[in-house]
């Protein structure tokens, strides 16, 4: 009897996350919501999983991510998934579709297929979100609503419990959202021209080819310079050893050769793949930072 009780208890309170870690005290009912969103018909504000009232004690806290349209911003996905992982929250991804006015001819004829198509596209777009969340062991549930964004959020807030705050896309109008939603709203701000943006790794072969081109170019130039000096060595020696102000000649020549031949030698080693260690190179001491330093990624700011 005691054994059975223990078994029942552990089955109820343990969920294995995709990364293999156990989460205690989380209800399992939410798992079903990870599946594709069912499509229904009916009222203008259309909750596709309205029948699921999540009012279980110990209900997980959630972050609401809203996208106007079917696609989510990639930065928004990154940010939210990381935040949810850190906080141990779940995510609700809400797509709000804005259909044409109800009275229009288009709506009367093609309203339903339009919405069906929207849900399909939104589900496909959310799959990426869910996959990314699943990698970090965060549960992500997608919902679709139609109509006014603020009303949709408000309605969802009533239906789903424990939505702690909302994250919106960078392009959302701050006033528009915050005026009517009774949730703390964070919107991502994306800086333009930030320092140290995402630099794509250059194709190694391309890099080597560039070095090779430079090696050949500077090598040819260097050879020309050497040939120029050594074919006229008698004249060169006469003028270069006249002393006095003519001292500028050997000194300048040595400098010019060091630039051209130095560039040749430098590219030559690089083309051979002999380059400085990436780890061992000591960074130069950082220059004094400007007071306001732009960050390389979008950050949330509270607009509640």
């Amino acid at each position: 009897m005691l054994g059975r009780l223990k078994k029942w208890k552990s089955a109820k309170s343990t969920i294995v996350r995709p990364d293999g870690r156990n989460i205690r005290g989380r209800p399992q009912t939410f798992e079903s919501a990870l599946e594709a969103v069912p499509l229904g018909s009916g009222p203008e504000l259309h909750d596709l999983a309205a029948e699921e009232k999540l009012q279980i004690p110990g209900e997980p806290r959630k972050i609401l991510v809203v996208a106007q349209g079917e696609a989510f911003d990639p930065d928004e996905i990154d940010y939210t998934v990381n935040l949810a992982e850190r906080l141990g929250y779940d995510i609700i991804a809400l797509n709000v579709g804005t259909p044409p006015p109800r009275s229009s001819r288009f709506y009367q004829v093609l309203g339903k297929p339009w919405r069906e198509a929207f849900v399909k596209r939104a589900s496909a777009a959310a799959a990426r979100f869910q996959a990314q969340a699943a990698k970090k062991g965060v549960r992500c549930r997608q919902m679709v609503k139609f109509g006014d964004l603020n009303k949709a959020v408000e309605e969802l807030n009533q239906e789903v419990k424990r939505i702690e705050f909302m994250i919106t896309e960078p392009q959302f109008n701050k006033q528009e959202v915050t005026a009517q939603v009774t949730l703390p709203v964070f919107s991502l701000r994306r800086y333009q021209g930030y320092q140290g943006g995402k630099v794509m790794a250059k194709d190694l072969r391309k890099k080597k080819m560039t070095y090779l081109r430079y090696t050949i170019g500077f090598g040819a130039l260097s050879a020309v310079l050497y040939a120029a000096v050594f074919t006229n060595s008698a004249t060169v020696t006469t003028y270069f050893t006249m002393g006095g102000l003519y001292a500028a000649l050997p000194v300048t020549t040595a400098l010019i050769f060091s630039f051209v031949h130095g560039a040749f030698a430098s590219n030559f080693w690089s083309a051979l793949g002999i380059e400085a260690s990436r780890k061992a190179t000591q960074p130069r001491p950082a220059a004094r930072r400007p007071v306001r330093r732009e960050r390389p990624r979008p950050r949330a700011e509270l607009r509640a």
Partner: peptide
């Protein structure tokens, strides 16, 4: 040294060819 004309630029350039590598 150059002001008194002692630099043999040919020697300098040959050594430089190797030493820059």
């Amino acid at each position: 040294w150059a002001t008194i004309g002692m630099v043999d630029i040919r020697l300098t350039l040959i050594i430089l060819a190797g030493s820059l590598f």
